[in-house]
């Protein structure tokens, strides 16, 4: 499937782009991370410590083992610091 990936804060800085579209066979965000990390070291630098990451599927905060199903947009970012 084809999915839009969006990155924020230092995840975006380490990967070097804010948004990209990828074709993937990943079934979960964890699969996506493994697939991307094998593609290019930039992803390894951003995704190395999963405990420091959060993921949103179609703009809803999700878990790394949540099925992607027909997700259009998956976002990776550090823990949020609003307020």
């Amino acid at each position: 499937m084809t999915v839009d990936l969006v990155y924020f804060a230092w995840v975006r800085e380490r990967i070097g782009v804010a948004r990209e579209t990828v074709t993937t066979t990943a079934r979960t965000p964890a699969d996506l991370i493994a697939e991307l990390s094998a593609r290019d070291p930039r992803y390894g630098a951003a995704f190395g410590d999963v405990s420091a990451l959060r993921v949103a599927i179609d703009q809803e905060l999700s878990d790394f083992d949540t099925p992607l199903e027909n997700a259009k947009e998956v976002a990776f970012f550090p823990p949020m610091t609003g307020g």
Partner: peptide, 13 residues
């Protein structure tokens, strides 16, 4: 306030 701090997607630099 507690929820905006940790559940609203903002990042401070």
């Amino acid at each position: 306030m507690d929820y905006l701090k940790s559940r609203a997607p903002f990042w401070k630099k």
